[in-house]
């Protein structure tokens, strides 16, 4: 059995936690799944569609997102956006993120 690459394991762990935050941030503006994936890819966050759509459903199930079907370019698409609860959660997550960022940056600058 080959040992997993420690960097890769740590990177995936780090990414997994940040992905929800990135999705919530992008959905401050209403988007359908494909547009969301492209928007994330444009800023360097690649996510597989097979993982993205179930994640959107889960976040919607938790009440963080709202969605509706609409027609765009002659095709029915499901558009997702942050719900009021999602906005509140996003604010709190961002506060967490900033605190973590400040701590990590502080440590890096101190050379600890």
């Amino acid at each position: 059995m080959t040992e997993p690459d420690p960097f890769e394991s740590a990177r995936l762990e780090l990414r997994r936690g940040s992905l929800i935050l990135a999705v919530l941030l992008q959905l401050r503006r209403e988007r359908h799944g494909y547009a969301l994936r492209k928007a994330l890819a444009d800023i360097g966050i690649e996510i597989d569609e097979g993982a993205l759509y179930p994640m959107l459903r889960r976040l919607e199930g938790q009440g963080l997102l709202a969605s509706q079907w609409r027609e765009e370019e002659k095709r029915k698409k499901r558009f997702y956006s942050l719900s009021p609860l999602g906005r509140g959660v996003l604010d709190r997550l961002l506060a967490e993120w900033r605190a973590l960022d400040a701590s990590i940056t502080g440590m890096i600058e101190e050379g600890v």
Binding site: Y34, E49, Y53, W69, R78
Partner: peptide
């Protein structure tokens, strides 16, 4: 409870 909804969305993804 979400079956038809998910299938419709998946159908769109796969056709695209």
């Amino acid at each position: 409870d979400q079956r038809d909804d998910i299938l419709e969305e998946l159908d769109g993804v796969l056709r695209r």
